[in-house]
Structures are given as C-alpha cells and as structure tokens.
C-alpha cells in the first residue's frame, strides 16, 4: 500500500512544481506589443460565421474582412498570426483569461464591454438589421415584429442579442450559440426573424432567398472595434496608430470593395445551411 502513497505524493509534487515554475516563467513573460513580438505570434480570437467578417471557405480556411485586418496587423508587427475560433459569447471571457491577445470579430464597442476589456478606435461602422421569414410579410421596422406569437432568434452575447432583448416586449427572444444556429431556426420557420448586422443579413438572405427577405435599413449604429485585455495601453495605442494608417491607405478600400461590394469570394464560401 505504501508504494501507491509514494507515487501519489511524487505526482502531486511534480504537479505543484510545474505550476509554480510555470507561474514564475509566465511572470517573466510580458504582455502588450513587446510580449507579442517576443512570442513571435499574435493570437486572434474570433467567431466564425459572421459574414463577411469571418467565415470558413471550402478549403476549411478562415477568410473575411476581419481576417485581412488581423493578417495586416501581424505583418506590421513582424509576427505570425494564429486564429482561435470561439463561440461569440466566449470571446470576452477568453480575453479576460488571457487566452488570446486580441479579439477581432465584428465586435461592437459598448460601455458594458468596456468595463471588462479595452477597445481600439472604430475600424468599421455597421448597424442592426432584420432578416424576416416570408410568412410574415411587409415588415418595415422591428416594432412590426413585436407580437406575442412571434419568435426572434439572435446570436447569444452579441449587441443584436442585447438590442433585441431591449426592444421586443411581446415577442420571444431566443438566443443561440452563433448566428448559424439562429439562422437555422429562422429557415425552419420556428423563428419569424433574426436580428443581426446589415452585412450578415444581406449575405444570409442571398444564401436563402426562398424563405427570407431582408429589412436592411439599420436601426442602430454599431461601432466595431478590436478588443484587448485591460492593462495594455501600449497595445491599444499601437492598434490605433495602425488603424489610422490602414484606413487612410488603399488596403482598406480594396478590402471593403472585395468583401462587401464585389464579393468575388461568394462561390468559394459554402453557404451555411
């Protein structure tokens, strides 16, 4: 019996030593731009499925407007880029737990979020729109959908979620992990509408024109920013400098035209069913 005890004690010791040593080693690691450059890679948290900011193409690679921004940032820093895909609602906790360096996921800058993370300046302006099931015709604004028998599907944790919860007093708001499942609920007719930002609504409707129609007039203003863990003012400053350069330069216009206007990527991305 005593050899089992000895083995257990040895394992526990090894575990404690690893954790403590790991802690010391980690304390030597820096955060911020220096830390990222030292580690040689930028870990970007994102939530694939928000067209056309981040999505997966037929070769199973992550592509999109946000992906291009992330790659440009990494290039400027002189490091590799590594994407980690989360459910949208898991992005802020991941940032809080320092599992990722930044979040670039079409995330709106909100006061509530600013309490727990920091944001760069706005890099894109969008707004919430509606994607409506054809069984409910002539919807022009969200209030038209605020009836007790209607269900509105949203992606959990997004500003669409918060907006919908705020404005719909009679309709039921159902929250799903990711816009894909929310869209599925709409296609199957169990929800009458999805609230999400205009680019997503336009594209999703184009993928499923038989059952849905879009109401694209945005009824909110969404300033999208890059989220960063608190306590990294140098990273925020660096990003803002970069974004200014990026927005003024030709790359931004090119990316915008590519992802939002001309959309030559359309056939390479499988539609979400």
């Amino acid at each position: 019996m005593s050899w089992i005890r000895k083995v257990t004690a040895a394992c526990l010791m090894a575990f404690v030593v690893t954790v403590v040593l790991g802690g010391f080693a980690a304390q030597a690691q820096d955060k911020g731009v220096e830390g990222i450059k030292k580690r040689g890679k930028l870990v970007v948290g994102t939530a694939s499925g928000y067209y056309p900011f981040e999505m997966v193409d037929k070769k199973n690679e992550l592509v999109g407007f946000d992906v291009d921004v992330a790659k440009a940032i990494a290039k400027e820093m002189g490091v590799q880029v590594e994407f980690q895909n989360y459910a949208f609602s898991g992005l802020v906790p991941a940032l809080q737990a320092n599992k990722i360096d930044v979040v670039i996921a079409g995330m709106t800058i909100t006061d509530k979020r600013k309490e727990v993370v920091d944001f760069s300046d706005t890099y894109f302006v969008s707004g919430q729109a509606l994607l409506v099931h054809k069984s409910v015709p002539n919807v022009k604004k969200p209030e038209d959908l605020d009836k007790k028998e209607y269900t509105i599907a949203v992606s959990m944790g997004t500003t669409a979620d918060q907006t919908a919860t705020r404005i719909f007093k009679n309709a039921t708001v159902k929250k799903f992990e990711g816009s894909a499942l929310a869209g599925l609920e709409l296609i199957s007719g169990k929800a009458q509408a999805v609230v999400h930002e205009t680019p997503w609504v336009a594209i999703y409707n184009r993928m499923n024109p038989q059952v849905t129609y879009p109401v694209l007039e945005p009824f909110t203003t969404e300033n999208l920013g890059i989220a960063v863990p608190k306590g990294n003012p140098d990273l925020v400053a660096w990003l803002n400098t970069f974004l200014k350069k990026y927005k003024d330069g030709g790359d931004y216009k090119k990316a915008y035209a590519y992802w939002f206007v001309d959309m030559p990527w359309w056939d390479a991305v499988p539609p979400k069913k």
């Binding site: 790991g22 980690a26 690691q29 820096d30 955060k31 911020g32 320092n98």
Partner: peptide, 16 residues
C-alpha cells in the same frame, strides 16, 4: 515593477 502590474500568462488575473 512591470512584472507585477501585468498578470502572468497562465491565468492569475489580479484585476478581476
């Protein structure tokens, strides 16, 4: 002094 302001990477976040 900076090492104490920034949280160590494996997850002890003193600011929460």
């Amino acid at each position: 002094g900076d090492a104490f302001r920034r949280p160590p990477a494996f997850g002890v976040n003193a600011m929460y």
